[in-house]
């Protein structure tokens, strides 16, 4: 298990989500990613993105106009699915 940090300060959503999505593709299930942002929208968007793609939010916090989301990469195909 590795823990990496993604700095997406000064980017506005959805770019922090896109950068998170791209970074997660390079990680393995169980790895952790700490995303550091300045757009408060990430507090809603990254957890939403995690829920629909099967990743787990471990922690969110904010201080001094910075917002941090820590997530754990889920297994493949753990996200929502519309199979009828």
């Amino acid at each position: 298990m590795t823990r990496e940090v993604l700095n997406v300060r000064c980017l506005l959503c959805p770019l922090p989500v896109i950068r998170t999505q791209d970074k997660v593709k390079q990680l393995q299930p169980g790895d952790q990613l700490e995303v550091i942002c300045t757009d408060p929208g990430v507090m809603q968007d990254i957890p939403a993105w995690c829920r629909i793609n099967g990743h787990k939010v471990l922690e969110t916090n904010s201080a001094d106009h910075e917002y941090v989301v820590v997530l754990e990469v889920g297994g493949l195909d753990k996200g929502l699915t519309s199979h009828g």
Binding site: P14, V17, I18, Q21, D45, A48, W49, R51, I52, N53, G79, L80, T81, S82
Partner: peptide
């Protein structure tokens, strides 16, 4: 993202 979650589908941005 919100729509995708309501529909229960993955979203690729």
């Amino acid at each position: 993202l919100w729509v995708a979650e309501q529909l229960g589908i993955k979203l690729h941005i």
